[in-house]
């Protein structure tokens, strides 16, 4: 399953020199590191293509009510398995005669919503735990990092399944489950980075000037952590979309009649022979979405980490 390798990819390249050096160098070299980063990002053609596709997918989900030709829930049992371009169904009809195109558009809303919401949970939890552990060190660090290690002991899919099986399926629970099982890598990266950052002169200076811990974290440490957070966020959207489809496949997914790409794909498995299109479209959309976000994530990492210069 791909949830793990992609999240493994959130780790910095293994032989990385501490990111702080990189950031300092960036600061020293260019007036606008963000513009530099953007230039590097768009030089990466696959990342740029990924970004365009991602934006199109997001737009289609937002505009689903306007774009969908029919009610995605309207069952028309006589139209089951209408092939594409027949009977007024652009992409055909599904196993109970619902318009596949409309369903795909609405399903995209749910799948992407799960993706973004789970990412938000991941980023929130991962950032807070990473920064707090790294900044305070000592006992809080030990406790939080042991917790992180404990969760890392289990392959993500185990955690996903156990939680999904025991909590029951709903949009909220699936989002939380995915989010809460994928923050550990980010927390680790941020913790290590913060550990190094807090010894930097400007942080020490801020502390000497009597800045509160909270201010130090929010004003100094957080901005310097934006690069890994952005990378992790993008890759996590991809992961969450994929994870949602696995949960569906293993029988713990979003409830009907609501559609997500994952449960559409899963429901369509039996009809490969008679109605291949209903399995093909959601599968292609999941792959496209996941690959696009992954490319964007890769591009971001290259762009924000100047060490990986070409």
């Amino acid at each position: 399953m791909a949830t793990k390798p992609a999240s493994a990819a959130t780790a910095p390249p293994p032989a990385a020199i501490p990111a702080t050096d990189a950031l300092l160098r960036t600061d020293a070299r260019a007036a606008s590191p963000w513009r530099m980063a953007a230039r590097r990002f768009f030089a990466h053609r696959l990342a740029a293509a990924g970004l365009v596709i991602s934006i199109l997918l997001i737009l289609s989900a937002i505009l689903a009510p306007a774009l969908a030709p029919r009610d995605p829930l309207q069952i028309s049992i006589l139209d089951k398995f209408q092939p594409p371009l027949t009977g007024g169904f652009l992409l055909g009809a599904d196993e109970v005669g619902r318009d596949l195109l409309s369903r795909l558009l609405y399903a995209g809303r749910i799948s992407l919503l799960v993706g973004f919401a789970a990412m938000a949970v991941t980023v929130l939890v991962g950032t807070v735990i990473g920064l707090v552990a790294g900044f305070y060190g000592g006992r809080p660090d030990a406790i939080l990092m042991r917790l992180t290690d404990a969760l890392l002991c289990f392959p993500t899919v185990f955690l996903l399944l156990v939680l999904a099986a025991f909590v029951g399926a709903s949009l909220l629970s699936i989002t939380l489950i995915i989010g809460l099982t994928s923050w550990m890598e980010l927390a680790r990266i941020l913790r290590n980075q913060t550990l190094a950052l807090r010894e930097q002169d400007y942080v020490q200076a801020g502390r000497a000037l009597g800045a509160s811990n909270r201010r130090l974290i929010v004003r100094h440490l957080l901005p310097n952590s934006l690069a890994p957070i952005m990378v992790a966020a993008t890759l996590n959207i991809a992961n969450a979309v994929l994870a949602e489809s696995y949960i569906s496949y293993l029988g713990y997914g979003i409830q009907p009649p609501a559609a997500s790409w994952g449960n559409m794909l899963n429901n369509a498995q039996s009809y490969f022979q008679n109605a291949p299109w209903i399995a093909l479209f959601p599968g292609v959309l999941i792959t496209l979405t996941v690959a696009s976000f992954n490319f964007v994530g890769d591009g971001l990492r290259d762009a924000l980490d100047p060490r990986a210069r070409r």
Partner: peptide
């Protein structure tokens, strides 16, 4: 490689 990583395995 990215497509292989992004395709749902069961599919």
């Amino acid at each position: 490689a990215m497509v292989a990583l992004s395709v749902p395995t069961f599919w």
